[in-house]
Simulated scan of single mutants.
Amino acid sequence: MQDHLSSTLRDKIEILTLIQDDETGNMAWAPSRKRWGSVEIDRQRNLFSIVGVGSQGVTIVIRPDPLLTLHQAIRWNGEFLHLTSITLAPERDRQEIKAAICHPVTLTAKPQARTGRDTMNRPTVVQQATFSFPGILTERYFNSEEDEVFRRSTLERVLVAPKAVVLRVGDLVQLGDTVPYTVLQRMDLEFYKNEYVLERREDV
């Protein structure tokens, strides 16, 4: 069994871990370690988002890595793989990883001011610092003509971000120098990621 596994692990993969700068709060994916694995393209798309469209799925087989979690990502053959499941084989000699081929971008979060309390317990405005982070922007899934009509006057995207990226409704998210998106909805029940519905008013 071990010899057979060795002969199939011919693909070089790199495990990525999210790091955060203590001073700026900026986040980015950074190489953590390299492994040999077997990577196969799936016939079906991977529905990595709750409300967004899926993308090409892949299955990766590696020797058990006890440190690997869904909070991480994989780079393979120049592609970024967003992990969606990790399963240990009954023989405990390999892990099967399901992932989606995605194209992360660097975004800038511009949180709106929060309401806090001063030393006298009076309401006060607390300004929030901007920070950059990696995220996956995907199309929102539309399933009716009414949705499409609404979409003509708004540009909606679904943002899939690491769990460490915490935004609130009303916060702004900007890609480069483009017009910022506004966070409309936050979905945070998944333990390893957060999803946000973004909106930008324009004629599309």
Rank of each mutant, 00 (worst) to 15 (best):
V39N: 04
K12L: 08
Q185Y: 10
V149D: 11
E96H: 04
H103P: 01
E199Q: 14
V39M: 08
G54R: 05
I60P: 00
Q174P: 03
E139S: 10
G54E: 05
T130V: 05
N143F: 10
T138W: 04
R200T: 05
K34F: 07
K12D: 09
D203N: 11
V51S: 09
D21K: 14
D177F: 14
V204Q: 14
A73N: 00
G37A: 13
M120P: 03
V53W: 00
R168S: 15
E202T: 08
Q185P: 03
I13D: 00
N194A: 07
L189A: 13
S144I: 05
F131K: 02
F48K: 02
R43D: 11
M120A: 10
R168Q: 15
E91C: 13
G170N: 10
G37V: 06
I97K: 01
I74A: 01
Q44E: 12
D147Y: 08
M27I: 07
Q112L: 15
A99F: 00
G116R: 05
I101L: 07
T106I: 13
T130G: 04
Y181L: 08
L184K: 09
V61L: 13
T69G: 00
M187N: 10
A73H: 01
T130W: 00
L88S: 12
G116E: 04
M120T: 14
D21P: 01
G176N: 09
E79R: 11
S132F: 01
V58W: 07
A161D: 00
P31R: 06
A30D: 10
T124R: 13
E14G: 01
I60G: 04
A129G: 06
D93C: 11
G116F: 04
L68D: 03
L189G: 05
S85W: 14
G78I: 06
H71S: 09
D11G: 04
V61S: 13
L159Y: 00
L159K: 01
I97W: 02
P162E: 03
V58M: 04
N121H: 09
S85E: 12
A89S: 15
R33T: 10
L198I: 08
Q56C: 07
V173P: 01
V160T: 14
S32V: 06
L83Q: 02
S132K: 11
E145R: 08
G52Y: 04
Q174W: 03
N143A: 11
P31K: 02
I60R: 01
I97C: 02
F191A: 14
